[in-house]
Computed example of a mutant assay.
Amino acid sequence: MTTPWWQQPVVPLDAGRLAQALAREAQLTKPAGSLGRLEQVAVTLASLQRRGAPSLERIWISVFAADHGIAVEGVSAFPQEVTGQMLANFAQGGAAISVLARHLGAPLELIDLGLAHEIAPLPGVRHLNIAAGTASFLHGAAMTAAQCDAALRVGQEAVQRAVEDGAELFIGGEMGIGNTSSACALSALLLDQPVSELVGLGTGLTALGLRHKSRIIERAVAHHRPHANDAFETLRRVGGLEVAALAGAYVAAAQNGLPVLVDGYISTAAALCAVRMNSDVRRWLLYSHRGAEPGHRFLLQELDAEPLLSLDLRLGEASGAALAVPLLQAACRLHNEMATFAEAAVSGSLV
């Protein structure tokens, strides 16, 4: 039996570069540990990038868009037409991630995996049309195995383009009405936790809407739990096309030696899928922020992740990850450009 591509080995960390980076941090003109997690991030990036001087000057952002059939069950405050409308807004440069990508000088790749409502082709958007969105996962699977595999490969191909462009960091984003419901169902199945602890307001539901959303997801999770026996099957049953693309991208990034900065709730659900599909992917994932959705913190705990920011974000699109990039860039510059005690002619070390 052929091993799936996502189970192929990932690039190992460079233990020599890790030791070198730790030694340099110990000699910089500051008290040991005084830059906190910025020191840890710089050292981690040095080992991931296999270089003495970590660098994050070339950032690649791919945003994956797709619709979710579960939206027809009334779990969102917005209609599915909004996915296509927001994709057009991305393409026109008016979305939050469009603004942040320009601010970072990063390319912004837009990928339409499949919308429920057909739209005219948009300039600069890759329209793939794997399906007209997913099916409702209330009583059946969201995707066929072939659709899920195709979506995973979309993420793999996005990473390949990033690598060919010389990217030093990959960021994935998402857009899809109903995708917090998908992330909640994924979290409930992968973490074996009650939906009531994970469900959130998503795009702005009322209290009544939240209760309805919770009941729908609880019914769906109960239906799929006996059959969700591995990460791929769980993803296929209650995931989304864009969530699968993110998971595929994370695996492919690790296989290509490209560090990843994970965005918010949806992206972290995809990250857990990726780690369950290939456990060695975990070491290649950095986490940008802790979002406002209740389920996000449980996912982060499971992944033993410490995000850089906590700003009560719930937008998605890769916006939180983009906001964290300057912190990572600063960590690299501090590591690379601060003087050592010897260079500054400072006696001893600061403790």
Rank of each mutant, 00 (worst) to 15 (best):
T3P: 06
W5F: 10
Q7C: 04
V11C: 06
L18H: 10
A21D: 13
L22C: 14
A23I: 10
E25K: 01
Q27K: 08
K30D: 01
A32M: 07
G33F: 15
L38A: 02
Q40R: 09
A42Q: 03
S47L: 06
G52V: 02
P54C: 00
E57N: 13
R58K: 14
W60T: 01
V63M: 14
F64H: 04
D67K: 10
I70W: 03
V72T: 06
E73L: 15
E73V: 13
G74V: 12
G74A: 11
V75R: 00
P79G: 11
V82K: 02
V82R: 01
L87T: 00
G94P: 00
A95T: 00
A96V: 08
A106W: 03
A106Q: 03
I111F: 08
D112C: 09
G114P: 09
H117Q: 15
P121I: 14
N129V: 04
T134F: 04
G140A: 09
T144N: 02
A146I: 12
A146L: 13
L152N: 03
V154M: 05
E157L: 04
V159C: 02
A162C: 02
D165Y: 14
A167S: 07
E168M: 03
F170I: 11
E174D: 06
I177A: 08
I177Q: 08
T180Y: 07
S182N: 13
A183M: 03
S187P: 11
A188V: 08
L189A: 11
L190Y: 09
L191F: 12
L191I: 10
P194Y: 08
G200K: 07
L205E: 07
L208R: 14
R211E: 14
K213C: 02
S214C: 13
R215Q: 15
R215G: 14
R215P: 07
I216F: 08
R225T: 06
N229F: 09
A231G: 12
E233L: 15
E233F: 13
G240R: 04
G240V: 05
V243N: 01
A244M: 04
A253M: 11
V260S: 07
V262K: 01
D263K: 14
Y265D: 11
Y265F: 15
A269R: 06
A269Q: 10
L272H: 14
C273I: 11
D280Q: 05
D280V: 01
W284C: 09
A292H: 02
R297W: 08
R297E: 13
F298L: 15
D304P: 14
L308V: 03
L308S: 00
L309F: 06
L311P: 06
D312Q: 07
D312F: 03
G316C: 01
S319Y: 02
G320R: 05
G320S: 08
A321Q: 10
A324G: 05
Q329P: 09
Q329S: 09
E337G: 02
T340L: 13
F341M: 13
F341Q: 11
A342Q: 15
A344Q: 13
A344S: 13
A345R: 12
A345Q: 12
S347Q: 10
G348T: 05
S349T: 12
L350A: 08
